[in-house]
Design a protein around this nucleic acid. Structure first.
Lengths: 344, 344
DNA sequence: ATGAAAGCGCTAACAT
DNA sequence: ATGTTAGCGCTTTCAT
């Protein structure tokens, strides 16, 4: 509280103590070449004695290199984006790169404001969720003087780097599976204006794939954020309109799981009366009985790949890791895996 | 790729265009007083024309105020910490404060390294999970020239600010509930060396409260990270040793949920044969049948309060929000709410 | 291999 | 109300 507010030691203090110039301190601290081991050692001793840590803000200003990675995601309230962030953090470990977080809450205006604010930090990279952005956001990303990774989705026109899965592939995969296992009266339940846009892409691909097979799709979109409760409500709603359905595909696993509760409470046998299918491949979905059908979306891996892609671009494979050969190209499409669950 | 790498406009450029001095530009951009509306307008026009955004790194260096909040959490792989971060982000909105993230993976050495790295950014505040830290971490936090909030737990000796719930209270609450509802042969299942330490505190309080009632506690700790799978395994293991148990308290809801699957698969009636109790109050636990007993831990709210506490300390209630009166004191203990679930 | 000088882009402190 | 000067702490550039 009433601490004397002592300011931390600077490179000058270390230089004075070690009897060298500030620039030598700078070189030693950065591990730069051209310092004799004698001086190197003197500086190390002095720095340790004073508890010196280089001020990253000053270094960043002068070197025009902040080592900050702006990570912009739409939400933290389901496990998808935290897992992506976890993957990013994992992929960034061993570098000095640090994640600065922005949460848009699926609000494009907010996304623009956050990006603007983060870009003012002169980040070393931007990782942003999705390929669909407000024109202003696209413009800012294009103008950014750092690498940009768009993560999650590969169906579109990336600004720079991109890693994700194909939403179209997901929709087709699920349509093929449900039809192959004999379903013909198929519904789809989404939530909250289909945020993120990826869910709309999946639905459209799903509907198109069914159409190609001569089937149509009953669609119901709940006007509420995606959650178990919303899934339960959505399931009830679509069945009220179409009690004959033999399969429902949900925008994600949370909704599908909520639907499972509706079915349990109403004596609907899953998957015999009704198949339930989600998207994401959450751990829970793979444990619950009956197991739901889903598509495993590699969330952690997408984050990890985004980080590795950045490091490749930034040339920051300082520590090890260069041994693992990275894929070539600026768009990495990761595989989706169908989990048939109990629907066979 | 081969972009001309044009450097963004600076305050000088704006000043030149507006025919004023740089300091006037600075004052206008910060909304500082003592600028005539005529100049203010000129600067605004010039700034907009050039697409000028003040460089936050330079501003931070000079003003010795970064507006970065170092947020250090142990994990992103279950929903607890993402929700805390969501709360922090919410509580920080309307300020220029930005979250810089560090994930320790429950590794104290890593925690120290991350903190050291983040402190070198001269953050405006540190929010860190838990009260138990490596001595080196405690020392760094004490030496930090910014406010520090320890979040999650209030049972201990806070360094500065603190907001969380009482783990001891949680343990006692659950013991009282299980005993009141007639259980007498009680077990406890934890995971992974009881990380975070809070789970150990809860277990100890739980055991002590049972002891006061003349009951002892069968304890089993799985050596694996907390997850549904681990909960299922832990439940099986403790029942193998103690098939007579009539209640098991798990370190968290994930474990308890996994246990529920074990019970289902083995014809154990919950809660009639065996009561299952967790901790956290996850949405899912409140929907599943039978509903598990749990204690709602206000994760989002803890994050939000941490941010509000900081803003109080930093005096950054710039926009509105001052109307909501903040609690006094530097330690906020938030309430825990028992959710009896199906165990009555 | 080492250092001196200059300056990154901004804002505090001090004029006027 | 406006500007001038200085300098945050570091690293680039250019000597030596």
């Amino acid at each position: 509280m009433s601490a004397p507010e002592i300011s931390p030691p600077t490179a000058r203090d270390v230089a004075a103590r070690a009897g060298v110039s500030v620039i030598t301190v700078s070189r030693v601290m950065r591990g730069a070449p051209n310092v004799s081991s004698a001086l190197r050692e003197k500086v190390r001793v002095a720095a340790r004695a004073l508890g010196y840590r280089p001020n990253r803000v000053a270094g960043a200003l002068r070197a025009r290199e902040t080592d900050l990675v702006a990570v912009i995601v739409p939400s933290m309230s389901h496990s998808v984006f935290p897992e992506v962030i976890d993957g990013i953090d994992h992929g960034l470990s061993g570098t000095h790169l640090r994640t600065v977080l922005g949460i848009t809450h699926y609000d494009q205006a907010r996304e623009a404001a956050i990006l603007q604010d983060l870009i003012a930090w002169n980040p070393s990279a931007v990782i942003i969720s999705g390929l669909e952005h407000h024109p202003e956001v696209r413009a800012m990303l294009h103008a950014a003087s750092c690498p940009v990774v768009e993560v999650m989705d590969v169906d579109g026109d990336p600004i720079d780097l991109c890693v994700g899965t194909s939403q179209y592939e997901a929709g087709e995969l699920m349509a093929a599976h449900l039809v192959e296992t004999g379903r013909r009266r198929i519904g789809y339940v989404g939530a909250w204006g289909e945020r993120p846009d990826r869910s709309r892409k999946r639905r459209e691909a799903f509907a198109a794939a069914l159409a190609r097979r001569g089937l149509d799709l009953a669609v119901h979109i709940e006007d509420a954020p995606s959650s178990l409760i919303t899934g339960r409500a959505g399931c009830a709603a679509i069945l009220a309109a179409r009690p004959d359905l033999d399969a429902i595909h949900f925008a994600n696993d949370d909704l599908a799981l909520g639907a499972l509760f509706h079915c349990r409470e109403n004596g609907i046998e899953v998957p015999d009366d009704l198949a339930l299918a989600g998207f994401n491949g959450l751990e829970l979905v793979e444990m619950i009985t009956p197991r739901l059908t889903t598509i495993a979306n590699p969330r952690f891996e997408m984050g990890r790949c985004a980080a590795r892609m950045l490091r490749r671009r930034l040339g920051s494979f300082d520590k090890a890791a260069t041994d693992q050969p990275l894929p070539a190209g600026d768009v990495w499409r990761l595989p989706l895996v169908l989990d048939r669950g109990a629907t066979t």
